[in-house]
C-alpha cells in the first residue's frame, strides 16, 4: 500500500492505456508519456505496462506502507526520500514508513511537465476492460475512476518484483532528441481535411511555432498561433477520432486530442500527431511552443520502431545488469 499525503491534484493511476474499447465509446486513457512509464517499469523489472502514478502538479507526497523498489521517470523533478535528495530516472528502495516527496521539475536540457512514480510490481488497482488506467470521463478504472486525493491508499502487488538494481537511465528525450530552431518537434501526418485548408494556412501550420495554451490537459491541447482558414466552410458529421488527431474548430486555432480524448468528434482534421511522438507532446509544458513536422506513413512507422528499439535496448541492458548483480 502507498498512501497519498499531498493534495494529489490531477495525479492519476495510469498504465499504457485501454486499447480496443473505442468501439464501445471508451477512450484509451493511459500515460501521457508512455515511454517514461515503460522505462520506469523496465528499471524495476515490471511488465512495461504496469500501472504507475502520473504526476502533473507538485509537490506530490506519498508514504510507503511496505518496503518497495521504486523509480521516478518523466520530468527532471527534485525528489526527496525522508528528506534526502534522490535522482530521477533511477531505481531506488524505500522501506515501510518512508516518505517520498516529489517536487517540481528543475531546469534541465529537456523541459517536461509530468513525472511518473513506478513501484515494484505496479499499482494493483483492479483492471477494467483490460487496463488500470483512470478513465476520468467515465469515472472508472484507476483509483475509483478519479484523480488522487490526500488520504487515498493505493494497493500494491502483494509480492512486488525482483530486488532493486542500483542503476538509472538516460531519458529517451536525450537519446532521441527532436528539435528545430531550438523548439521541440512533434511529427504529424496530414489528415482527411488537410487539403481543404488554405495553402497559406497550411504553410503556417507546418512552419510556425505553436504555443500550448492554458486550456490544455489530458483531454486535449489547445494551441495558439496563426489562424488556420478553410478554403470553404466545412460541416462534418461526428466520426471516430484517436489521440493525436489535430482538429481545427471555428476560429482556426488547432486542438490536439490527447489520451483522455473522447472517441468521436466532428471538427475538421488538419493532421494527426504520430503515435510515436505522443509522449513528446504529452510532456510539453503549458506555455511552451512546439513545431509540427510533416512526415509520411513510412516515417511514422519507422519512428514507432525506433521507440521500440530504444525500449528493447533498455530491457536488454537492465537484464544484463540483473544477471551481473546475481552473479556477483
Amino acid at each position: 500500500m502507498i498512501e497519498i499525503l499531498s493534495s494529489g491534484a490531477l495525479a492519476t493511476v495510469q498504465d499504457l492505456g485501454r486499447h480496443g474499447a473505442l468501439g464501445l465509446g471508451v477512450g484509451v486513457s493511459g500515460a501521457m508519456d508512455g515511454m517514461a512509464l515503460a522505462a520506469g517499469n523496465i528499471l524495476l523489472g515490471n511488465d512495461d505496462g504496469a500501472a504507475a502514478i502520473e504526476i502533473p502538479v507538485f509537490p506530490f507526497v506519498v508514504r510507503f506502507g511496505r518496503g518497495s523498489a521504486f523509480a521516478i521517470t518523466g520530468a527532471n523533478v527534485v525528489a526527496r526520500l525522508n528528506g534526502s535528495p534522490i535522482e530521477a530516472w533511477w531505481a531506488h528502495e524505500a522501506v515501510m514508513g518512508d516518505i517520498l516527496e516529489i517536487g517540481p521539475p528543475e531546469p534541465s536540457p529537456w523541459r517536461a511537465a509530468r513525472a511518473y512514480l513506478s513501484i515494484s510490481g505496479g499499482i494493483a488497482v483492479e483492471p477494467v476492460l483490460g487496463s488500470r488506467s483512470t478513465q476520468l470521463r467515465g469515472a472508472f478504472g484507476g483509483h475509483l475512476g478519479r484523480q488522487l486525493r490526500k488520504g487515498d491508499r493505493l494497493p500494491l502487488a502483494p509480492t512486488g518484483g525482483p530486488p532493486r538494481l542500483d542503476c538509472g537511465l538516460v531519458p529517451p528525450a536525450l537519446a532521441m532528441p527532436l528539435e528545430i530552431d531550438g523548439l521541440p518537434v512533434v511529427r504529424a501526418l496530414p489528415a482527411a481535411e488537410h487539403d481543404r485548408f488554405a495553402p497559406a494556412s497550411l504553410a503556417a501550420f507546418w512552419s510556425e511555432p505553436w504555443k500550448i495554451t492554458s486550456h490544455s490537459d489530458r483531454y486535449g491541447y489547445r494551441f495558439a498561433g496563426p489562424v488556420l482558414e478553410p478554403l470553404a466552410p466545412m460541416e462534418l458529421r461526428s466520426h471516430g477520432i484517436v489521440p493525436g488527431v489535430i482538429q481545427v474548430p471555428h476560429g482556426g486555432q488547432p486542438i490536439v486530442q490527447m489520451r483522455d480524448a473522447q472517441p468521436s468528434g466532428g471538427y475538421p482534421k488538419v493532421a494527426t500527431v504520430i503515435e510515436a511522438d505522443l509522449w513528446r507532446l504529452g510532456q510539453a509544458p503549458i506555455g511552451s511552443r512546439v513545431r509540427f513536422l510533416k512526415v509520411d506513413w513510412e516515417e511514422a512507422v519507422e519512428a514507432l520502431d525506433r521507440n521500440e528499439a530504444w525500449l528493447g535496448q533498455v530491457r536488454r541492458l537492465v537484464g544484463l545488469r540483473r544477471l551481473q548483480e546475481r552473479a556477483a
Partner: peptide, 8 residues
Amino acid sequence: RVGPLLLP
C-alpha cells in the same frame, strides 16, 4: 553510461 543505462 552504457548505452541508455547509467551505472552508479
